[in-house]
Amino acid sequence: MKILLEMKSEVKYIENEKETLTLGKHISRHCSAPFVIYLSGELGMGKTTLVRGLLSGLNYEGNVKSPTYTIVEPYELNNQEVYHFDLYRISDPEELEYIGIKDYFNDNSICIIEWPEKAKGTLPQANLEIEIEQYQHGRKMTLVWKD
């Protein structure tokens, strides 16, 4: 017998930055460690803004710096860790082994990964996949929840 993964997909249309932050907050209510999010979208689509909203939903109010140059930005919250990755500069998935990526995925962590396709095969399955695209003057965000 085939076991089908249960998937729930939803599409949100976003007008502006404020709504992006609100959606991020909304998403955070459904994330509890261990949790993995794949976040896709071109430059300037508001990925960092969405992550800022998500972190604020988890009661983090500090700066949310881009992880482009550091590969990963860690956030220590009350009882869980959040790691924000940008894998754009990874050329070979093997590199992720060298930076010890497996250590970041633990029972106590929420991992948000931009450019997950750069890490083919080395990342755990996502619990949520988010794709951001431009739609008229706003954004279309497709959320696919996997359980």
Binding site: T68, I71, Y88, R89, I90, S91, D92, E94, E95, Y98, I99
Partner: peptide
């Protein structure tokens, strides 16, 4: 050719 610094390289 990678459009940015590749850490391992």
């Amino acid at each position: 050719e990678h459009g940015g610094v590749v850490p391992e390289l």
